[in-house]
């Protein structure tokens, strides 16, 4: 049971993030929602590669014993880097939107025409 807690946390994080994106009207909160989803997915990747009592696979000459598999960690690292870029891009766009509208509330911005 205890081993499943990370997976439950993953599902929880993704649902929290999605509901933030769907129900929050503040643009910053929408971005926070996206980063929460991102953390959920990253946590999932890390959990997949986790092995109890293993060492990190960063040795030139291995000391022996159980090693964690490096691939999921590499994936997570890539995903985090991409996430940073995306978040930065989104925040910079929000700055421009705020400058123009003077608000972050989507309801006050008015949607695009039909």
């Amino acid at each position: 049971m205890i081993a499943n807690i990370p997976y439950l946390a993953v599902v929880g994080l993704i649902i929290i993030g999605l509901s933030a994106v769907i129900f929050k009207k503040n643009l910053i909160k929408i971005i926070i929602g996206i980063t929460i989803i991102q953390s959920g997915v990253n946590l999932f990747l890390i959990t997949l590669g986790y092995r109890e009592g293993s060492t990190a696979p960063i040795w030139t000459s291995s000391p022996g014993g159980v090693m964690a598999f490096p691939v999921p960690q590499a994936l997570t690292l890539t995903s985090i880097v991409i996430g940073v870029a995306v978040t930065a891009l989104m925040l910079s766009l929000v700055i421009h939107l705020y400058r123009h509208h003077g608000t972050l509330d989507v309801r006050k911005m008015g949607g695009d025409d039909q």
Binding site: L18, I34, I37, M90, L93, L97, H101, D112
Partner: peptide, 27 residues
């Protein structure tokens, strides 16, 4: 042009969420 920025923001939100779900599926 504020409409362009808005369109860009919508696009990045939608495609990031899409891509994250793709990543989830890959995982």
């Amino acid at each position: 042009k504020v409409k362009s920025v808005e369109a860009g923001f919508k696009y990045i939100v939608v495609s990031t969420i899409g891509a994250l779900f793709v990543l989830m599926a890959i995982a």
